[in-house]
């Protein structure tokens, strides 16, 4: 991989990592949800500078080229993130339903007490 590509990619990824941290600071992204993206960003930067190691890994797994191995790892990462998001949505859905029900029951009690 040419050095210019490495440098440009590293800069882009560093900007991305800073953006993730900025979102954590402004509380738009929770620390828990930022971890996967930070690990991903740092891992990709390490990969850029460890191509021979990746080649060995690709040979070991039986993947023809390093780029295919990276695509494969990226795919697995995205599936993991998607599953985590689905799980979070399911949990939040349950919480929203519970809150709506409890709010409605509480309103009913308050209205009843007001009438008295």
């Amino acid at each position: 991989m040419p050095n210019s590509v490495k440098i440009i990619s590293t800069i882009i990824l560093c900007i991305f990592l800073l953006y993730v941290l900025k979102n954590v600071k402004s509380k738009q992204l929770s620390v828990r949800n930022s971890i996967a993206w930070l690990i991903m960003g740092i891992s990709v930067i390490i990969c850029f500078y460890q191509i021979p190691t990746l080649r060995k890994l690709a040979d070991f797994i039986g993947v023809e080229t390093v780029s295919n191995l990276l695509f494969f790892l990226g795919f697995i990462f995205l599936i993991f993130v998607c599953f985590d998001i689905t799980r979070t949505i399911s949990t939040q859905n349950k919480k929203i339903i519970n809150l709506t029900q409890e709010l409605a029951l509480l309103k009913k009690e308050v209205e009843k007490n007001d009438k008295k």
Partner: peptide
């Protein structure tokens, strides 16, 4: 009992059971 969000049949019935 008025639910502010539409919860679907299951959510509505469960509100009744909680009541």
């Amino acid at each position: 009992i008025h639910l502010d969000n539409n919860l679907g049949i299951g959510g509505a019935i469960q509100t009744g059971y909680k009541y």
